[in-house]
């Protein structure tokens, strides 16, 4: 057998049907991405809610006596409340999408957009209120706090901010990738 014979075998394959697009499988894949994104959102919501509820409880149990002492408690409860409200809104908005492939894809995009928005605004609704009220509380304390405590608290919030900066990037990438899939799906009759 010579190379030309191999080339004939190779060229002959163009005469046979090659592949067809499996609509159901694509749908399943998109559904799985939506479930994954919903799971991440739920974990974050429950995680943040429980952590800040615990923070509020610990602060109360520590025996706050002044109104400034209750400010961090209020900030922590504000975070819990906001997370709960946003969760309800997110779930309600997802109900608006139908079960079709495009509907599922749009729901996945909406969910990723929600996660992206939450990550992007984390500084304003979580870090800043908690940092400001905690520092105010420390400043109003009758006994002056040692320098290391100030540095520790400020450092923790700066570190939290730096970590929070990275989170939205991942969701932005996921969202872009889903939007690209939607563009291809909408524009290719082959794939519908």
């Amino acid at each position: 057998m010579e190379f030309e014979d191999l080339q004939v075998i190779w060229t002959d394959q163009d005469k046979t049907p090659l592949f067809a697009f499996d609509h159901d499988a694509m749908h399943r894949k998109i559904q799985s991405r939506l479930r994954n994104s919903q799971r991440i959102a739920s974990t974050q919501e429950w995680g943040l809610g429980l952590i800040f509820l615990a923070v509020a409880l610990i602060l109360v149990l520590m025996g706050q006596t002044t109104w400034i002492g209750f400010l961090p408690v209020a900030a922590a409860l504000f975070v819990v409340g906001r997370v709960w409200v946003r969760r309800q809104r997110r779930k309600a908005s997802l109900k608006g999408f139908d079960a079709s492939m495009l509907g599922t894809l749009n729901a996945a995009i909406a969910n990723e957009s929600h996660l992206y928005q939450e990550g992007r605004t984390l500084l304003f609704w979580m870090l800043l209120p908690m940092a400001t009220t905690s520092l105010m509380n420390m400043a109003a304390s009758p006994t002056s706090k040692p320098l290391w405590q100030w540095l520790f608290v400020i450092g923790s919030f700066v570190l939290g901010y730096l970590v929070a900066l990275r989170a939205p990037r991942k969701h932005a990438r996921q969202r872009t990738s889903l939007i690209e899939v939607r563009t291809v799906l909408l524009n290719a009759k082959e794939l519908q």
Binding site: I9, D12, F21, A25
Partner: peptide, 22 residues
């Protein structure tokens, strides 16, 4: 394993054994 449950394309394997070998 999760990946293997999805099939976007129903790809026909080469029917000619020589092509499959290639």
């Amino acid at each position: 394993i999760a990946q293997h449950s999805h099939h976007l394309t129903q790809t026909a394997p080469p029917t000619d054994e020589r092509l499959a070998w290639l």
